[in-house]
């Protein structure tokens, strides 16, 4: 079996004093969109805090991300980037076109399942870290929108080790240069991922590309 993977190295907080740091090989990845899970190349996965995307054409929906692991599934925050220009014509291409961003901090999914009504996914973004809140979504409402997430939270379904799904909020807006996405838990420490968008169209040299 040939294998393609991305190494995910999370810091899993199961309690204040209980942190696990496994290295997980993510071998299969999907994005829950419009009721189904669409496969996406694992090459799109990143935990970077600067992400290169063309300005003015990519959306970046905040997402809850669930990862299969033998120690118990993990949940964290992330963002699904895609190209807005081809979303309607070819949603798979639109999804493949953008990065799939996720935090290196995570909780066990079991810690989130019992608090889905209180856990909130939040997006703040702007030109700089003084950004503006763009929305917040209860985990339970994300689960209502994505049946697979509801099944995972209710333990009716589980991911194999190395499988990963982004459950994106319905937020199809052009991204701003600075973004903060978080999961707020009533008991656990929040998971926060801040990152910047770097426009690859910026000049390659001081004199500008010709």
């Amino acid at each position: 079996m040939s294998i393609a993977f991305r190494l995910y190295q999370p810091h899993v907080y199961h309690g204040e004093d209980d942190v696990a740091t496994p290295d997980l090989m993510v071998t299969r990845m999907g994005v829950a969109l419009a009721g189904g899970v669409r496969p996406v190349s694992v090459e799109r996965l990143t935990t970077a805090v600067t992400v290169s995307e063309p300005a003015g054409r990519c959306w970046g929906a905040p997402a809850a991300v669930v990862v299969g692991s033998s120690g118990g599934a993990l949940i964290t925050v992330g963002a699904v980037h895609g190209d807005l220009r081809c979303l309607d014509a070819d949603p798979d291409l639109a999804l493949q076109a953008g990065a799939k961003v996720m935090s290196r901090f995570a909780w066990r999914l079991s810690d989130a399942a019992t608090n889905a009504e209180q856990i909130t996914l939040k997006l703040i973004e702007g030109q700089d870290p003084e950004g503006t809140s763009r929305g917040q979504w209860r985990l339970s409402s994300l689960a209502a929108e994505h049946p697979a997430l509801g099944d995972l939270l209710a333990d009716r379904y589980s991911l194999q080790k190395g499988e990963l799904i982004f459950f994106a909020a319905d937020h199809l807006f052009i991204m701003e240069p600075w973004r903060q996405i978080s999961l707020q838990h009533p008991v656990r420490r929040p998971i926060v991922h801040e990152y910047r968008i770097h426009d690859p169209k910026a000049p390659l040299t001081d004199g500008g590309a010709t």
Partner: peptide
Amino acid sequence: RPAEIFVSRDGGRSWQCGELPIGSE
């Protein structure tokens, strides 16, 4: 590490990942 086994039968030109029945943690 993480624990996987890769096998080459052609002197390292190509590699296959075995199906080691092992947890990720």
